[in-house]
Write a protein that binds this DNA or RNA. Structure first.
Lengths: 192, 192
DNA sequence: AACTGGGTAGACCGGTCTGTCTACTGCGTC
DNA sequence: GACGCAGTAGACAGACCGGTCTACCCAGTT
């Protein structure tokens, strides 16, 4: 078992659950069983470890989401699969993503609020990647490039909103509700 | 100038900008010019101060939003005024709410992720209050109680999504885009 | 004039933070 | 078998954490 991997995985779990600034390096070390020197051998400081957890989650989340989406026919069904995945995530039905503590990227952005901060920008990049994934499928449903962009933004906004509602309010139906809206918007366009 | 008020106001500014766990009590004291004993005279501990800042922001935000909304005719125009207010907030056009660092309640919920935590629940209560405000106006446009609830949830989700897009991605058009969707949904119902 | 309440200033407490450093250990390679 | 590498364990440094406490101050009341 690679030490670096171990560190990042444990650090992510703790940072995601309790928040980055609420978890000290010593706790990460204790729970991962790694020596302090090893940590500072791999990372110049805590912030780099945080950045590594964001990167780790970015890949983990994208892989998971792409996997879910590719299991369905491209287009509307793929988008539906995406919201079904969110639904299972919120409800803790998905082993890989249980438990749900909101979106790590939103949470980390809240703690590193300065838009110029590299970690904040890392979170922004993740959101853009997700937006790209959405666009790939929306573009199969709508002809106009402008419409594709608008529709993808709308779906992304609904997705972020659903995550917030699920986390802050504990609304477990948030994903289903968001999909109902997204579907209505799609139908209004692809049939018009 | 009331000391308690001063503390809460300065603490909010710092917590909002840098995050709750990233700001120590000593910094709040230094920037507010209040003695440590006075703080612990008013609050049992830091967590109670945090709770007070959430309460402070809750009232400030609701008052501001209600003021903006009541300046417009009830119903759709009121909802439009709400998203215009968001738009100005994101862009820093509004003195009272400049600068924009995302939604304080989302940020605080991220740091106090446990849904059982009183501060998390305080944030949830704020979101429910906003939802109530939205419902008041949606109910003037739609007849069916069920439709009112669904539509209000959709608008709330769009609002949360817009805040996230504005903060994480720096999308300054987020409010305008969200309103365009909300308007489309409303028109599809009130004309049908 | 004495008392009181609410404030200031800041020393101090034990603990924790990030980060450095020393000393040791096991292992694969020459 | 000697060497070097990557790890462990953990003491340590200096700063800061939340929180307590003492000593003082001053305006208002009695």
């Amino acid at each position: 078992m690679e030490r670096r991997e171990q560190l990042v995985s444990v650090a992510f779990d703790l940072f995601y659950r309790y928040g980055v600034h609420a978890v000290g390096i010593n706790r990460v070390l204790a729970e991962s069983g790694v020596a302090k020197k090893t940590l500072y051998n791999h990372f110049p400081g805590k912030e780099n470890l945080v950045a590594a957890t964001v990167d780790y989650r970015d890949r983990q989340f994208l892989t998971w989401m792409e996997g879910r989406v590719q299991g369905a026919p491209a287009g509307k069904e793929a988008l539906h699969a995406m919201f079904r995945a969110l639904d299972e995530w919120f409800r803790g039905r998905d082993n890989q993503f249980y438990p749900f503590h909101g979106c790590y990227f939103i949470n980390v952005s809240a703690e590193f609020g300065d838009p110029e901060h590299p970690i904040h920008q890392q979170c922004a990049r993740h959101k853009k990647a997700i937006l790209g994934l959405i666009r790939n499928h929306v573009s199969q449903l709508l002809a106009s490039e402008e419409e594709v962009i608008k529709m993808s933004d709308a779906i992304a906004t609904l997705k972020e909103g659903a995550i917030v509602q699920a986390h802050v309010l504990g609304d477990l139906q948030a994903a289903a509700k968001a999909w109902a809206i997204a579907e209505e918007l799609l139908d209004a366009r692809s049939q018009g």
